[in-house]
């Protein structure tokens, strides 16, 4: 009895050995694929362009090199990098404020008030939310161009503020956490609709507001297409468009235009790191937010 069960256990172990091996190899390969580029990127600014080519790709150079790369980068076009970072902050945070101010009340009203057209608004919101944001960029550009708004900061902030996914998240949140009966009771006690919203709904909205803020900020900080189309001047660029300009000023990728400039591979790598720091910091704390956002974005049936 003991013998046979022992034998079958051994057989089972043997039959899972090969699949296990495949799984281990797959996971290791994926791990290298995802992480090696990140490690390389973090190490690159500590080396000179020459060391990048000749040294071990995953070796540490020196802090002096890092300082030199920083000085080259910062003097590029008279502190353009800092201007781009400031612009990105203004656009993303400005849009974030407008998004929260519009999507929290809208999601609340869609979930807990009744008005004609509510369902239509909800369906349109859903459809626009699922469509990739890039689909509307060119039409929005054509519209802004028609109204002469190209090149103003509002041509970026206002389209960035339109965030149907945020409205939907707030809607789902209120529909599932705030029972209508509480509002009905408060109404009978004489609360105005405005008081219901500010005293009952808003204090509850903190977690979903944080979720909307995370998705909105990350999406807008990384957005390239719209600002690329509507902002003609370098001093208005957000960092993403600025990075693109750095790319075309790097001799390794553009020998003609890049000649004579100090922007080489280490400087470019450093610029990438600086550009992603705000998003990276958010990402370190946001994995849970991603799951709850995406799984709430589409509810279980």
């Amino acid at each position: 009895m003991t013998n046979t069960s022992h034998a079958s256990a051994t057989r089972r172990r043997q039959s899972t050995l090969v699949p296990n091996l495949i799984v281990i190899v797959l996971f290791a390969a994926l791990l290298l694929f995802f992480i090696v580029p990140v490690i390389w990127l973090l190490l690159a600014p500590t080396k000179t362009a020459n060391e990048l080519i000749h040294d071990n790709p995953l070796s540490f150079g020196s802090l002096a090199n890092l300082g030199a790369a920083w000085r080259h980068l910062i003097t590029f076009q008279d502190h353009a990098l800092l201007v781009w970072l400031r612009n990105s902050a203004v656009y993303s945070i400005g849009a974030l404020v407008v998004t929260l101010a519009t999507s929290v009340p809208a999601g609340y009203a869609l979930a807990l008030t009744k008005f004609r057209g509510r369902k239509t608004l909800l369906v349109i919101t859903l459809v626009v939310m699922i469509m990739p944001t890039a689909t509307l960029v060119l039409p929005i550009f054509l519209e802004l161009n028609q109204f002469g708004l190209i090149g103003t900061i509002w041509s970026v902030i206002l389209p960035f503020s339109f965030y149907p996914f945020g409205v939907y998240l707030v809607y789902i949140y209120f529909a599932t956490t705030l029972p209508r009966e509480i509002l009905a009771a408060a109404r009978i006690d004489g609360c105005s609709e405005w008081q219901l919203f500010t005293r009952i709904a808003l204090p509850l909205a903190k977690p979903v507001a944080a979720l909307v803020a995370f998705f909105s900020f990350v999406g807008n900080w990384n957005n390239f297409f719209l600002p690329y189309l509507v902002l003609p001047n370098s001093d208005q660029f957000p960092i993403q468009v600025g990075l693109n300009q750095l790319l075309s000023s790097t001799p390794s990728f553009n020998p003609v235009a890049g000649a004579g400039l100090n922007i080489t591979s280490p400087e470019l790598a450093l610029a990438i790191i600086i550009a992603i720091v705000p998003v990276l910091v958010l990402f370190l704390f946001s994995q849970r937010a991603l799951v709850s956002g995406m799984l709430a974005g589409a509810t279980k049936g």
Binding site: T102, A106, Y108, A109, T113, F115, T125, F162
Partner: peptide, 16 residues
């Protein structure tokens, strides 16, 4: 509540 609903969604509706 209906009127309030319109007011609450108005900002988003304009952006939409």
């Amino acid at each position: 509540a209906g009127l309030a609903g319109y007011l609450f969604v108005s900002g988003y509706a304009i952006l939409l």
